[in-house]
């Protein structure tokens, strides 16, 4: 059992490490961010995990279209579902972070925060994935559902890049990584993050991704079981 589920234990160990080291280790003293810089271990990791889970979903959608095995469609939809969950969590944690760093400390008005391209882009990306599930739900034919939603999933993954990575960096944004915010690449800039933070950040990304994968595998196993039972009835 341990041999098969070592990565589940690894996920737990890494997340315990994330919380202990994330709260207790030294972080750079920066204005505006202050102690909230520790959100990096949680908020940014949600988006990293989401990208990886959506990437896995994309991979299985292509795999489905190559052989039309029903299993791959179940894999794709489950990974997309957990990826969306992480996206929503990333969005909500981002909203909380914004409320202190942009609104309180930088004195930005609500109007400028609502016009924020990173927020709009992330919302568009999540809504596109929301439409993926609406699309899936609207079919009664399993094969048709699998085929069309696989094609749509490829489109959704392709839309992630312009909406959350490219456009917010082309136009001005309050979020780190935009021109004018002088902070370079979000979460990966050496002005914001020192070596000590990286020691926590990368394990945190792996830990959050692994628990996402674990939940996705549970969803997959339940879906496959359900189908198996339906076929026997």
């Amino acid at each position: 059992m341990v041999q098969k589920s070592w990565w589940k234990i690894l996920s737990f160990v890494l997340l315990v490490y994330t919380i202990v080291a994330g709260f207790l280790l030294e972080v750079p003293r920066l204005f505006i961010l202050n102690e909230t810089i520790r959100n990096l271990y949680f908020h940014v990791c949600m988006w990293f995990a989401m990208m990886i889970l959506f990437g896995v979903s994309f991979f299985y959608s292509i795999k489905y279209l190559r052989g039309f095995h029903y299993r791959n469609d179940v894999f794709a939809s489950s990974f997309a579902a957990v990826g969306s969950l992480f996206g929503v969590l990333g969005y909500l944690t981002g909203v909380l972070w914004v409320s202190v760093t942009w609104v309180t400390d930088q004195g930005q008005s609500l109007a400028s925060v609502l016009k924020e391209p990173k927020l709009i882009g992330a919302a568009i990306a999540l809504l596109i994935y929301g439409a993926y599930f609406v699309l899936r739900g609207s079919f009664t034919d399993i094969d048709k559902r699998a085929r069309i939603s696989a094609v749509y999933n490829i489109f959704a993954f392709a839309m992630l890049f312009p909406s959350i990575w490219i456009i917010p960096r082309l136009v001005g944004s309050l979020h780190p990584g935009a021109p004018g915010s002088d902070s370079g690449n979000p979460a990966l800039d050496r002005n914001d993050m020192d070596a000590g933070m990286r020691m926590v950040f990368y394990p945190a990304v792996i830990g959050w991704t692994l628990i996402g994968i674990w939940i996705a595998t549970l969803k997959i196993r339940v879906a496959l079981l359900k189908d198996k039972i339906l076929m026997h009835v």
Partner: peptide, 16 residues
């Protein structure tokens, strides 16, 4: 704070 967060994490993992 660390203890509270660890409790939540452990509870979540036990549930999963």
């Amino acid at each position: 704070v660390v203890a509270v967060c660890l409790t939540i994490l452990i509870g979540l993992f036990l549930y999963v």
